[in-house]
Computed example of a mutant assay.
Amino acid sequence: MNLIELTMAEIASLFLMPVLVILALMFTYAFYELGRFGFESMMRSMGRKKEQPLKRFWRKNPKADQQEVELHLLKQLEPLRLVSRIAPMLGLVATMIPMGPALMAVANGNFQEVASQLTVAFAAVIIALLAASMTFMTLSVRRRWLLEELKSLVLAKEAAKQDATAELKAA
């Protein structure tokens, strides 16, 4: 290997530990969000909707228009969306980094090192895919819930506006 190849291999290996830490954090976040989602889903099935986040936002910001509420909705969903998209990419990175040393170990006949490197590679991709799956599922359903809430808020606001207009005309 020449100097450029060695340098690139060394730089790539420096990223393994940070990528594994980020994946562990993403998995922890995904597991936390899955728990929150499960609790919220259970409460909804029992007919006990917790306070709706968009309604709370609109109450705190009465002059907010629909676009501002939609932006707030997107901000709430953004972490789930990012984890569901970035985790598989980082899983691939964490899979590929140990493959170089594993292939070198195969060439040297060091099968213990091959097993060690491949264990890290496969564990990382599994954790990444689990994190992405949990956040994608949570994101999909929560987005629907928030859009349903937004629709009911807009309809309620329009009805209130029509009632106020009708009262003005009657007076």
Results as ranks from 00 to 15, higher is better:
M1G: 12
M1P: 09
N2G: 15
I4Y: 11
E5G: 04
M8L: 13
A9I: 05
A9Y: 03
E10P: 00
E10K: 11
I11R: 11
A12W: 10
S13L: 05
L14R: 13
F15Q: 07
L20V: 05
V21S: 04
A24E: 06
M26L: 01
M26P: 03
T28M: 11
A30S: 12
F31Q: 09
E33V: 11
G35C: 07
G35L: 12
G35Q: 01
G35M: 05
M43S: 10
M43V: 03
M43L: 12
S45G: 06
M46C: 08
M46R: 15
G47E: 12
K49L: 14
K50S: 09
K50M: 14
E51C: 01
Q52V: 02
L54P: 05
L54I: 06
W58S: 11
W58N: 01
K60V: 08
K60E: 15
N61Y: 08
P62M: 08
P62Q: 01
P62A: 06
K63M: 07
A64W: 12
A64E: 09
A64F: 09
A64D: 06
E68N: 02
E68K: 13
V69D: 03
V69Q: 00
V69F: 02
E70P: 00
E70Y: 04
H72R: 02
L73C: 05
L73V: 00
L74K: 14
K75D: 06
K75Q: 11
Q76A: 04
Q76W: 01
L77A: 06
P79A: 10
P79K: 10
V83R: 03
S84C: 11
S84D: 00
I86M: 13
A87W: 05
A87Y: 03
A87R: 05
M89V: 15
M89H: 06
L90D: 10
G91W: 14
G91H: 12
G91T: 12
V93M: 13
V93L: 15
T95V: 01
M96F: 15
I97F: 09
P98M: 03
M99E: 01
M99D: 03
G100L: 06
P101G: 08
P101Y: 05
A102C: 11
A102H: 07
A105I: 11
A105Y: 08
V106N: 10
N110K: 08
N110R: 08
F111Q: 01
F111I: 09
F111W: 08
F111P: 02
Q112E: 13
Q112Y: 09
E113G: 00
E113I: 12
E113P: 00
V114R: 02
A115R: 01
L118Y: 09
T119A: 15
T119N: 08
V120D: 04
A123H: 04
A124M: 10
V125L: 10
I127L: 12
A128F: 08
A128V: 05
L129C: 10
L129E: 12
L130T: 13
A131R: 08
T135G: 07
F136P: 00
M137Y: 15
M137R: 14
T138G: 09
L139F: 15
L139I: 01
R142C: 03
R144W: 08
E149L: 06
E149R: 02
K151W: 03
S152G: 00
S152R: 13
L153Y: 05
L153V: 05
L153G: 13
L153E: 02
K157A: 13
Q162L: 14
D163A: 15
A164V: 00
A166I: 05
L168D: 14
K169P: 04
K169W: 06
A170C: 03
A171F: 12
A171G: 14
A171K: 15
